[in-house]
Amino acid sequence: MQINNKKAQLYINSLLQHPLVRQLELVEDQGVKVSTHTYDVLKISEDEMKREFIGLDEYSKTIDVFAIIVGIIIHDISKGSIRINGEKLSHSQMMIKRPDYIIRETEKIMDDIEEETGLKIHDEIRKNVVHIVISHHGKWGKIKPSTKEANIVHKADVYSAKYHRINPIGADEILRHMAEGMQTDEICKKLDCTSGILKDRLKRAKVELGLKSTKQLVNYYGKNKRIPIGDDFFTKRIRETSRLINSVEKVGFRNLIKNSILIKYLDDDKIFE
């Protein structure tokens, strides 16, 4: 396959350097950086497309891969911008009550990138990006996804939110520090979490072991050095989220996006005027 995507790469690289995109690395949602979630949505979308077709060659001919990548990078931008702009509504509330805010912001970012790079994307692709962003909450937002691309991103966003938007701290980490003599406030500071999360994680471990008190839990950990962190579903969430965070921290959010296998399926002639 002949690759013709230098302009697309320039556009995406410029987008990844946009101040509002960089802001995503400074904003957390339930213990996970928004930038980490953004990469996760891209990876899940990529995996979904691989499953639907044996390869991505045919798939890329029938779907707007560029709009998917750009839409995913932008889709949670307001989680950072609403803080910068002092907005009172949350991202989720904006998606329901103020979709106009999301639309204007998405279009403004694309305007910024077009001005910086001199690359103008086709209007149809631009509209597709906006629709992906404004509809990614599905039934939990005001606008429902109505294109293949928007549905792919919506499903990926739902999966990521369900499995990977959780502070990946388990009772095993907490008990290790407790065994070292650390107090609750010290552990919270060490693990960068709230006392509520500590209580929740300890409670889940006690339920799994059928124990009633934290003292019993500490004694169990002292004898076994291993402990269940929750039921199968919760454990899956913790483990997958931990691996995701480690991957992003090791390689970098922007590098992971730029190295996505989807990049090679972009065709400048189909994207830009």
Rank of each mutant, 00 (worst) to 15 (best):
G55E: 02
I68Q: 06
I227F: 01
H75F: 03
R104H: 02
Y221W: 15
D76H: 11
R243Q: 14
H137N: 05
M49Q: 00
K206H: 09
G141Q: 05
R243L: 14
Q30P: 03
R51Q: 03
L119V: 07
D29T: 06
T117N: 13
R165S: 14
E124P: 02
Q30N: 15
S90D: 13
A171L: 07
V32T: 11
D47M: 11
A156F: 09
E149T: 10
Y163S: 14
N4Q: 02
P168V: 14
E46R: 05
V65E: 06
K215I: 15
L209S: 04
Q183Y: 04
I187L: 05
I74Q: 01
D123G: 00
S78C: 10
Y39C: 11
K236H: 12
I44Y: 09
I169R: 08
D29A: 04
H37M: 10
Q2P: 09
G80M: 08
R226T: 15
N219Q: 14
K236V: 10
Q9Y: 08
S90N: 04
S81L: 06
S45G: 08
Y101N: 02
N219H: 11
L175Q: 05
L217G: 12
G31T: 11
V34P: 08
G31C: 11
Q2H: 07
I261P: 00
L256F: 06
P228A: 13
N224A: 12
Y11V: 03
M182V: 05
Q23L: 10
P145F: 01
Y221L: 00
D100Q: 11
V158L: 13
S35T: 03
K236Y: 13
N85Y: 14
N246A: 14
K127C: 04
I134V: 14
L256M: 14
Q30V: 10
M1G: 02
I134P: 01
T147A: 10
E105P: 11
P168D: 06
I82Y: 10
N85I: 09
N259S: 03
G80Y: 11
V34M: 02
K33S: 05
H37S: 13
M110G: 08
K155F: 13
A171N: 06
D192K: 15
R243G: 04
A161T: 15
I271V: 00
L211G: 14
G118L: 12
K162I: 13
L202V: 08
A67E: 01
T241N: 04
I134M: 05
L211C: 01
K199N: 14
I77Y: 06
V21F: 07
D29V: 01
H154L: 13
I238Y: 10
R239D: 12
R237M: 15
C188A: 09
L244H: 14
K190S: 06
T38L: 01
K108L: 07
V70D: 06
G252T: 06
Q9T: 04
N259E: 15
K190A: 08
E52A: 06
R226E: 03
K199G: 15
D111T: 07
G252N: 12
G118E: 07
H164P: 01
E46F: 00
L211A: 07
I152Y: 15
D200P: 03
I113C: 02
H91A: 04
T36P: 07
E124V: 09
M95T: 01
I238P: 09
Y221S: 05
K236N: 13
K33T: 05
V21S: 08
V207K: 09
P228S: 11
